[in-house]
């Protein structure tokens, strides 16, 4: 891998990490309203999968979608303003952390739901011969939703060009996957006639490689594909989660395999510091801009409810 590519990937991953940590601070200081689901520890799956996609492809994501959003758009200002509830946010403060939109990028707060919506999007892309594929990020928790089974069944029956990028972070909120998932993940895909692979690596470049293979399969064959990505969130499920359901020892073990630290170790210190400073400055500028931005004019609150 060329050094410049490594630096670029590191910058994307660091941006997500620093963004999420800053969001947590803003919550602690009472500057944010509501809740948020950070993806600290899962930066490599977000950046790895998105790197394998074309800009005209379509992405759907979940309640834990900041990393996917930043990897897709790089729009720190729009995301920060959205989470801070400002009119300048990507959804004008209506959606907040878990309901985000950008061009060809959609998230919603219902577990599993967007995997099914994404399946329909993939069928539309196929029908219109756009050549685009859809990538739906889902989590291990979504496998317990019947809707996902229904949609994957249709995806296989109707040859939908969709990549289900399943981030298995071992926990559906506080409940370990061993308590929520009978059988296995890959056998589910097998039963539906859907190709699949599992990546158990903290190396973002291995994730990119597996994602590129999966994306190529989906695009070439116009078929669905399930890519299981083993990962771990170092933070709680949401801002109000003390992680009482798992040991610090378990977390420490995973911390030793922090994908961001692993990549950082392979970079020149000066390069790294320059990237980190640039990311932090972007985030601070976004916060400053959002603080100054107004909330949406109340006179506009009904706009977009009915399209004409």
């Amino acid at each position: 891998m060329a050094t410049c590519a490594k630096l670029d990937i590191y910058e994307q991953m660091y941006l997500i990490r620093a963004f999420e940590e800053r969001i947590a601070e803003l919550f602690t200081r009472g500057e944010l309203f509501g809740t948020t689901h950070p993806c600290i520890g899962q930066e490599a799956t977000a950046v790895g999968v998105v790197t394998a996609l074309e800009p005209t492809d379509v992405v759907t994501s979940t309640h834990r979608g900041h990393g996917h959003f930043l990897a897709w758009t790089g729009d720190v200002k729009g995301l920060m303003a959205e989470i801070m509830g400002r009119a300048t946010g990507v959804c004008a403060g209506r959606g907040g952390s878990q309901h985000l939109y950008a061009e060809n990028f959609y998230t919603n707060g219902i577990t599993g739901g967007m995997g099914a919506v994404g399946t329909g999007m993939a069928l539309a892309e196929k029908q219109q011969e756009s050549g685009n594929i859809v990538c739906s990020f889902i989590g291990d928790g979504a496998l317990a939703q019947g809707i996902l089974h229904e949609a994957m069944n249709m995806a296989s029956l109707w040859n939908a060009p969709i990549l289900y990028a399943l981030e298995n972070n071992l926990y559906a909120m506080s409940t370990h996957v061993r308590d929520t998932l009978a059988g296995g993940i890959v056998p589910r895909a097998d039963a539906l006639g859907i190709e699949s692979a599992t990546v158990e690596s903290e190396d973002v470049f291995e994730i990119i490689e597996a994602s590129e293979k999966a994306v190529e399969y989906v695009r070439e064959n116009c078929r669905p594909y399930l890519l299981e990505l083993r990962t771990y969130r170092f933070c709680g499920h949401s801002i109000n989660d003390e992680r009482a359901y798992r040991t610090r020892e378990e977390e420490d073990e995973w911390r030793k395999r922090d994908p961001l630290a692993l990549l950082a170790g392979a970079l020149d210190g000066a390069d790294r510091r320059e990237i980190e400073g640039r990311c932090q400055a972007r985030i601070e500028r976004a916060i400053a801009a959002a603080r100054k931005a107004p909330v949406q004019d109340l006179g506009d609150i009904g706009k977009g409810l009915w399209k004409s």
């Binding site: 994404g118 069928l123 539309a124």
Partner: peptide, 19 residues
Amino acid sequence: PISEAGTVAVTTGMALRGL
């Protein structure tokens, strides 16, 4: 298939992308 939820979800996705 007898998947009312899946059908409405999939068609919602189709509608979001031009059909």
